[in-house]
């Protein structure tokens, strides 16, 4: 009975992370982090800068190896996969990078066609149709002949999104998709993430600092701090969280458990020049 419940839970979750430990040099980034990403939903990872959100995406994608722990993607442990197995596994993952990471020597069309050319034997006509459909989904069918240097930041993000969904992946990972976007571009990206997740029947994992946009589209939010998950739940639950640190993060209060001032002597000491050393 217990095994059946565990199996059913595993089927409900696309990703399960168990007791993850990761160190960068001497610095401990994750200290026994555990979390799950439910299938078919949009899950957001939030937390202060440097808490390891992007690092976690890279560990899930197998680009970084943790010191200990398991990262199960569809039941397969990513941390134990060989280089060849990882390359195979990643065909089912679409990732949107913070910098968009478009190939600068290829046009918009060629960028979106790239994963299709690399991983399928489709004839050129089929590739063309697919590329145009993906570009149409992000509203940039008319920009197919432009080079990345001719795109605005928002357009580049949308092209990168079209490329990320080219192979209809089961997992979409977004690294700070709203950063540096004007309000219109941000609105477009927010609505695209929601629409594409539903249209593809995919699971989305979103890293962001923008609490309002993230709360508006996420089914579940995890807040990371100190190498662990300090809070997790539906967006509406977080402002009522018992931890004052979590509440400060969610409401964006400048001073609180996370102080506004970097630790220093009293201002008067510094101004009068007789600060105790």
């Amino acid at each position: 009975m217990a095994e059946a419940v565990a199996a059913s839970a595993a089927e409900d979750n696309l990703i399960e992370i168990r007791d993850l430990v990761f160190r960068r040099g001497e610095r401990l980034i994750f200290d026994g982090l555990s979390m799950t990403v439910p299938r078919g939903q949009i899950t957001a990872l939030m937390g202060p800068s440097g808490c390891g959100k992007t690092t976690l995406l890279r560990i899930i994608g197998g680009q970084l190896k943790p010191e200990a722990g398991q990262v199960l993607l569809r039941g397969e442990d990513v941390t134990r996969a060989s280089r060849g197995e990882l390359l195979e596994l990643r065909k089912d993952i679409g990732m949107l990078f913070q910098s968009s990471a478009l190939f600068t020597d290829m046009s918009v069309y060629e960028n979106v066609a790239f994963p299709l050319r690399e991983h399928t034997d489709l004839p050129e006509e089929a590739i063309r149709d697919l590329v145009l459909m993906k570009l149409n989904a992000v509203g940039l069918r008319g920009a197919r002949d432009l080079m990345p240097s001719q795109l605005s930041g928002g357009m580049a993000r949308r092209v990168a999104l079209a490329r990320a969904i080219a192979l209809d992946p089961c997992l979409l990972m977004y690294d700070e998709p709203f950063t540096g976007q004007d309000p219109i571009s941000m609105g477009v990206v927010v609505s695209l993430i929601r629409r594409l997740n539903a249209a593809l029947g995919a699971t989305s994992l979103l890293v962001s600092h923008d609490i309002h946009e993230t709360a508006g589209i996420s089914d579940k939010i995890y807040i990371l701090d100190g190498g662990k998950v300090v809070a997790g739940g539906q967006p509406a639950e977080l402002p009522e969280h018992p931890s004052s640190r979590v509440r400060q993060f969610v409401t964006g209060t400048p001073d609180g458990p996370v102080p506004f001032h970097y630790p220093a002597d009293q201002l008067a000491y510094d101004l009068l020049g007789d600060a105790p050393r």
Partner: peptide, 11 residues
Amino acid sequence: EQLSSMEMMGV
């Protein structure tokens, strides 16, 4: 991040 994105595309 072009190399990383390529890697994440399974290339």
